[in-house]
């Protein structure tokens, strides 16, 4: 069944979009990530312009992360002060990101920036995760206990000024690295249409040593708020949020996420991380190939103004 999207201005097959949302939702439920980094490229592949795809996926991430936040809230595993500091950085980062987004679009280098950013971030994060999870698997096989949190062990991050106490995370650290992390993720989220969970979760665990049970809930709160702000900013600056497309994606996504979460519960943590690393790496590779191979058509055009006003 074809349905015409009011902002993307093209008809799409509603079942295809639903199943895309469902498939990405499945992975996101299984791995506890937003899945924006998978959904945005899929949408671009169906012919939706990168501008609309990125902006609309931010809206979809709002829905999926809110659903997650409610769950973690009930379990009381959210550190709100920590989320608040991340968020302040996140909003600043998003504003810069949306501004850069419109600038790059005007200069014609948006697609390239998105591709290069995807390649570098996905391969970096994917590679790190793969190494870490394989090590954890080897460790657990040799019978040693797997522990991510080593209390008493501090790194350079803990030597910075402006310290603040985060009770639920049992942390006493400087707000600088937290705000910087927030800014980075808000910025990436706005430019790439990704929630940034796959960057945030490892950063909170390894860099700040936040307990794992608090990390996902807290990172979801930050992602929710940042993406909500990014949606509004995209709507105001670029008019590129397609509400209908977002709704179809959300419906597919939340259903897929439920099944994904159930499958995820039967897998071990390090196995999940290794699988996710492979998914992340393969998406990165896909973008790298596109950048290096000679395109079928060297020419392209984009409408700057007029036509359908």
């Amino acid at each position: 069944m074809q349905i015409y999207l009011p902002i993307a201005e093209l008809p799409v097959n509603i079942f295809m979009i639903l199943s895309m949302g469902g498939a990405v939702g499945f992975l996101s439920g299984m791995f506890g990530i937003g899945g924006g980094f998978l959904l945005t490229p899929l949408l671009i592949f169906t012919g939706i312009t990168p501008a609309v795809a990125v902006a609309t996926v931010t809206t979809q991430v709002v829905a999926s992360s809110f659903s997650g936040v409610l769950t973690y809230w009930r379990r009381k595993s959210i550190d709100f002060p920590l989320a608040f500091v991340l968020l302040c950085g996140g909003i600043a980062g998003s504003a810069v990101g949306v501004w850069l987004f419109s600038l790059l679009q005007a200069v014609g280098q948006l697609d390239l920036t998105i591709s290069i950013a995807y390649v570098s971030f996905l391969s970096l994060i994917g590679g790190l995760m793969l190494i870490e999870s394989v090590r954890a698997m080897l460790r657990s096989r040799s019978g040693k206990p797997v522990s991510l949190r080593r209390p008493g062990q501090h790194n350079w991050v803990h030597g910075l000024p402006f310290k603040m106490r985060f009770r639920r995370s049992r942390l006493y650290v400087s707000v600088i690295p937290i705000a910087v992390l927030g800014i980075t993720i808000g910025f990436l989220g706005a430019v790439l249409g990704i929630g940034g969970g796959f960057i945030m979760v490892p950063a909170l665990i390894y860099l700040l040593r936040v307990p794992t049970n608090v990390v996902i809930g807290t990172s979801l709160v930050q992602i929710l708020a940042t993406m909500a702000v990014a949606t509004v900013l995209h709507a105001v600056t670029n008019q590129s949020v397609d509400a209908l497309l977002a709704l179809i994606l959300m419906v597919g996504g939340v259903i897929g996420a439920q099944f994904g979460a159930r499958v995820g519960q039967h897998l071990r943590g390090e196995q999940l991380r290794a699988l996710l690393a492979l998914v992340v790496l393969s998406v990165g590779l896909r973008f790298a190939i596109d950048l290096v191979l000679e395109p079928v058509d060297l020419y392209s055009f984009s409408v700057l103004s007029g036509g359908g006003q």
Binding site: T59, V62, A63, F66, S67, A228, A243, A246
Partner: peptide
């Protein structure tokens, strides 16, 4: 749009 997303997430 954000409200719609929140509503969908809550409903789910």
């Amino acid at each position: 749009t954000v409200l719609m997303a929140l509503g969908t997430g809550w409903l789910a």
